[in-house]
């Protein structure tokens, strides 16, 4: 039988870091402009897919880039920075290609229906919103918000991955990395779904009124991730 209390006491810092990572992912999801199915028909602002898909795309890229950096260095700051940048690049590419589709394919200007003026460029928005839609495309404020959100998500994801890999155990290295990455992916999905329930599936970015609801999701994600983190640390630490 494994010494559960001993492992929790020994790795308590890792449990806290994993929980912090989960909360960062939950906050990050609130910043990514997710439009869902309406955006896929250019009837809402944001990228035309669900929160989970966007968060997973950005987060998994973050894990890959963090893992790659882990090959060459053991510096925590570099590994986490690499994961953050990876996720930011991924979401930027997704948003810019989506933007081309909206502008050149659908033929609509990027416009937000939630604010009258773009909070960053100060451009007028309401004149360009087509009737019957809730905006379309990805305006500058949403784009920048999305990059920040993906950065927070990638930061959280690589923090989880790094903390899991800092747990001492007797596993062969290949198995250890496999288990840690699948565990980080599982946590990523849970922490992407909880905030997407909070925002009701669509959000434009930090200028969206729904963004003010983020403390609730961060609290929910704190509880859920803490529970999962204890299980993960006990499972991996006991091996």
């Amino acid at each position: 039988m494994i010494d559960i209390v001993g492992i929790i006491a020994e790795d308590f810092l890792n449990i806290l870091l994993i929980t912090l990572g989960g909360m960062l992912i939950a906050l990050g999801v609130h910043l990514v402009p997710v439009g869902g199915a309406p955006a896929a028909m250019a009837q809402a602002t944001g990228v035309g897919t669900g929160t989970v898909q966007l968060a997973a795309g950005a987060g998994l890229t973050g894990l890959v880039t963090a893992g790659f950096m882990m090959n060459v260095t053991e510096s925590m700051a570099l590994i986490i920075a690499s994961g953050t940048i990876g996720a930011m690049i991924m979401i930027s590419v997704t948003m810019i290609v989506g933007q081309w589709m909206y502008v050149y394919g659908v033929g609509c200007p990027p416009a937000s229906a939630k604010v009258k003026y773009d909070p960053i460029t100060k451009d007028r928005q309401d004149l360009y919103v087509s009737q019957g839609t809730e905006g379309h495309g990805i305006p500058t404020a949403s784009f920048i918000s999305g990059v920040i959100g993906a950065g927070l998500g990638g930061l959280g994801g690589s923090l989880i991955y790094y903390s899991l890999l800092s747990i001492e155990n007797g596993l062969p290295e290949a198995n250890f990395i496999g288990i840690a990455s699948i565990f980080a992916i599982g946590l990523f999905f849970v922490n992407a779904v909880i905030p997407s329930y909070n925002i009701g599936g669509t959000i434009e970015g930090f200028h969206d009124p729904k963004f003010k609801k983020f403390p609730k999701a961060v609290l929910a994600s704190f509880v859920a991730t803490f529970l999962a983190a204890i299980m993960g640390v006990v499972a991996i630490g006991g091996m």
Partner: peptide
């Protein structure tokens, strides 16, 4: 949020 999110939640929790 669309139905897919809850399926991914299931497998996310499931894998943990």
């Amino acid at each position: 949020t669309g139905v897919p999110s809850i399926g991914m939640l299931a497998l996310g929790i499931g894998v943990i």
